[in-house]
Amino acid sequence: MDKFLKMTAIVAPMDRSNVDTDAIIPKQFLKSIKRSGFGPNLFDEWRYEDVGEPDADNSGRPLRKEFVLNQPRYQGAKILLARENFGCGSSREHAPWALKDYGFDVVIAPSFADIFFNNCFKNGILPIVLDEAIVDALFNEVHAEEGYQLTVDLENTQIVKPDGEMVTFEVDSFRRHCLLNGLDDIGLTLQHEADIKAYEEKTKQTAPWLFAG
């Protein structure tokens, strides 16, 4: 996984609450057995006039011009600004894969659905929870100013606005450590092999039926 340190990028506003994973990446794309290539189908139903198909060429499809990611001013956005309960619905990791593949490294919202929140970290996306009032203000500023950019500094857990104003955010220290160092969870866990084996030995005594296979 790439290291996540500090980035500055255009912010795209997704002004809806309860954006679910079916909206982020519609189910027909879950049929892929790959991890990559989902970006062109991010928000497929909202983004295109027609219905998308997996493994098809998306370049010639009719776009819904009013949809936020289709507006010229938000091209190149790497930060998604969202409303409450973003990412609700299924556990599909295709949702963060699609966001990442499209180019989003950060999602800011007042709240996230749990599974989606966890899946983000595992795929190098930083989900940031901010107060509703701050998120509101950000929406206003993004709408008001074309080319609005934020700087997200994970090292110092700070967001810097164009006018220099700073907003601090909280992030789990373990997740922060993994993102900053580009660490892979499995490698980390396997460092504790002895603990896992000790747990198994103990459980074989107390609940042998769990080891009957």
Partner: peptide, 14 residues
């Protein structure tokens, strides 16, 4: 429920 990275994590580490 877990995501696919976690499926892999459980396969590899239990």
């Amino acid at each position: 429920g877990i995501g696919t990275s976690e499926v892999e994590h459980v396969l590899a580490t239990q």
